[in-house]
Amino acid sequence: MQQHTTVIDKAAMALSGGLMLLGVVVLGIVEILAGKPYSAAPLTNDAGEIIATPMIDPTLRTGLVLAGILVLALYGLYKLVVPMENEATTAQQEITAD
């Protein structure tokens, strides 16, 4: 089946994918390069004291991922609101027939 993607489709894919990959992968690489802790949680010693904190606040990283999900949610709502492709085609054909 041939699928037709519009500018909106491509923008939704690029923006949501970009935001989510930025939060997870890109800033994850930055976190590794910044040294310990390599993950998004503080590093503690045996006594439970924090000895190193993440360079990038996990709130920022999770926020970017949530923003990506929000873009997809808005795209879903947009698809619910705009006429479907075959509906539009049918309407156009009706106009032509008149």
Partner: peptide, 27 residues
């Protein structure tokens, strides 16, 4: 699944168990 995403977002953010990275079982 939309509601599933909503639930899992709250679990992922709320548990905040990122000791092994941001990509955990909740995510």
């Amino acid at each position: 699944s939309v509601f599933g995403v909503f639930f899992m977002s709250l679990f992922w953010i709320g548990n905040a168990e990122f000791g092994h990275g941001l990509v955990n079982s909740d995510f």
